[in-house]
Simulated assay, not measured.
Amino acid sequence: MRPFSLLSRQEVAPISYVLTDVDDTITTNGKLHPEGLDALWKLHDSGFKVICVTGGSAGWGDTYLRQWPVEAVLSESGAVCMYREHGVIRHYVHPSIQKEGYGQRAKDLIDKVLSLVPEAKLSSDQFARIYDIAFDHGSEPPYLSREGIDRVVAICREMGAGTAVSSIHVNAWFGQFDKRRGTEAFFRDVLSLDSETMQRVSCYCGDAPNDQVMFSCFPLSFGVGNIRRHSSQMHDLPRYVAQNEGGAGFCEIAGALLANKMH
């Protein structure tokens, strides 16, 4: 992971889209601080198109799209995307999701995890999720141990679910997607840009192990400072890393992009 002093204008020149995680990347300890929102506005006002890519709920995604200066929000680890088309908010659902019977499969998974891992609990915003199942491990006390997290992941995978561990949740879903494949599908089907073009004109910002699929995809990637806490558990790290954590780190990333943007 390199310091921003090594970032070049040549790397930033082709970038039109800034893809970014939300929790603990734009936010700090679960809250949106002024510097995080200010960074979003500066990127927007300079012509960058910001797209959030989050394991958070579709309900949060709808809120972000309505309140923040962003083009789209891919939520629930790539399951669903909300975006504006001629002023109308549209929903794009990943094509691998089989809607029929999904609710029952999700219920069966939840029941099994909660019975086998008594200390596990659903995220308090589970009601706002359409396809994702989120087990809270670091958002609200009591927190789940590392052993508990691993047990939840193992059970979900045994039941055929995809999984990802963020800084606050164990996310599980049924479908052939993750943050990367959800983003690629949205760019292909809605923005009419193939994967190669997407990688060339986009960068990614994140903070946690579930961002690895994005770090490995984009030649230009950034981590906020708290990525250092997880680096020993990760095999794919961002190219550049901020000094500060959370929203202050995201503000650093925005500043580095703006400073190297060719006009």
Rank of each mutant, 00 (worst) to 15 (best):
R2A: 02
E11W: 11
E11F: 07
T20V: 12
T20G: 08
V22H: 01
D23T: 12
D24Y: 11
I26K: 00
I26C: 03
T28G: 04
T28W: 12
L37M: 10
W41T: 12
K42Q: 14
H44L: 03
D45E: 07
K49W: 13
V50C: 14
A58G: 05
L65A: 06
E71K: 11
A72Q: 06
S75C: 15
R84H: 12
G87I: 06
Y92T: 01
I97L: 03
Q98Y: 07
Q98K: 03
E100V: 00
G101L: 08
D111S: 14
P118Q: 08
P118H: 01
L122P: 05
S124E: 09
D125K: 04
D125E: 15
Q126C: 10
Y131H: 08
H137G: 11
P142L: 09
R146C: 07
E147C: 09
G148T: 10
D150R: 10
V153F: 04
V153T: 04
V153G: 00
M159D: 01
M159E: 09
M159F: 11
G160Q: 08
G160E: 05
I168Q: 00
N171G: 06
R181G: 00
V201R: 13
D207W: 07
A208C: 04
V213I: 09
S216Y: 10
F218I: 06
L220K: 03
L220H: 07
F222C: 05
V224H: 03
R228M: 01
R239T: 02
Q243G: 04
A254G: 08
A259K: 01
